[in-house]
């Protein structure tokens, strides 16, 4: 178990390093220079700018400096914003995005597996059809379309909820629901098929024949085993939520990290692009690690005292 965790941690660090290196190489192989947009400038100004961002040094040295700063948690200065560093922007944007993402994740986790389990328990009956229709809509309609439709009908036509912006909890409802729908649908489908498989297993029959009540059989034996595939896709889900946040924050005008990221691409703010990419990658890699640990804790077949895998 310890050995596996250490190995897994090592892998995560290698991945993070690979992301940093790839991002660095990509950002330094962009044709042209990052200050081209500022118009013609005197050579002295240009040289000063180059020196400020360390672009006059050889690539290897820039790379070493960047890595060293990263280890200290310093993402450097933004190339476009005069007042904020990349760290400031992440500090400002991340809590907003994180709240949105967490709310979406909670919605998906509450309803997705429940819908799937319900569908499996009532296979080919009305609850099954209803939840599978929801699941198919959720998978077919991308979040940016769902967001647009929700704004149009729930906010603009009926006026129940604010159209866009950020501030009160009402502002978070529509965006988190729009983001949650696709992961929820994926989870529901996965849960349905794994639940159907589990319900046919011998240990369910054994549990039933021992005289355990039906809810206990379902919750303790069926759901606990059937939810494992759902847990294993949590990593992908979180990664999809991050991408979803770029789009949703754009539609709903939410001042989160996703919008900074997209903005930094429009503005060609290379340090901000690099910083946010690496930050996102780090978050995702940590999440994947946590999901793996959670999987081991939940899987009844893995005993924590035993030397795992």
């Amino acid at each position: 178990m310890k050995k596996y965790l250490l190995k897994r941690l090592g892998m995560s660090l290698v991945t993070l390093w690979a992301v940093v290196t790839i991002t660095f190489i990509l950002m330094h192989s962009v044709p042209g220079n990052p200050f081209a947009q500022e118009g013609k400038m005197p050579k002295a100004v240009y040289d000063n700018l180059q020196a400020k961002y360390g672009l006059d040094k050889p690539y290897t040295e820039q790379y070493a400096i960047y890595l060293k700063n990263l280890l200290k948690g310093d993402f450097g200065d933004s190339m476009k914003s005069r007042v904020e560093t990349v760290n400031d922007m992440i500090e400002r944007g991340f809590p907003v995005s994180a709240r949105l993402g967490l709310q979406a994740l909670v919605i998906a986790l509450c309803f997705g597996p429940a819908l799937g389990a319900l569908a499996a328990l009532y296979q080919n009956k009305i609850p099954d059809y209803i939840s599978m229709i929801i699941a198919i809509i959720g998978i077919s309609v991308p979040s940016f379309i769902m967001g647009t439709i929700l704004i149009q009908f729930l906010a603009r036509n009926v006026g129940w909820l604010p159209i866009a912006g950020w501030g009160t909890w009402q502002h978070t409802l529509l965006p988190s629901f729009a983001m949650a729908l696709m992961p929820m649908a994926t989870m529901a489908r996965l849960m349905r098929s794994s639940m159907l498989e589990v319900l046919g297993q011998d240990y369910i029959k054994t549990a039933k024949s021992k005289g355990i009540t039906k809810p206990a059989v379902i919750l303790k034996h069926a759901v606990r085993n059937a939810i494992l595939p759902v847990i294993s896709i949590l990593g992908t889900t979180i990664s999809n939520l991050i991408v979803g946040s770029f789009v949703i924050e754009k539609i709903f005008g939410i001042p989160g990290l996703g919008r900074f990221f997209v903005q930094s691409i429009y503005n060609r703010d290379y340090t901000l692009i690099m910083g946010t990419t690496i930050f996102y990658a780090a978050i995702l890699i940590i999440m994947l690690l946590l999901v793996d640990i959670a999987y081991m804790l939940i899987d009844p077949r893995i005993k924590l005292t035993k030397e795992g895998r």
Binding site: M11, S12, V14, T15, A18, V19, I22, S239, I242, V243, F246, Y280, A281, L284, I285, L288
Partner: peptide, 8 residues
């Protein structure tokens, strides 16, 4: 390693 690099 390649796969855990965020796709998008």
């Amino acid at each position: 390693v390649i796969y855990s690099i965020p796709y998008m």
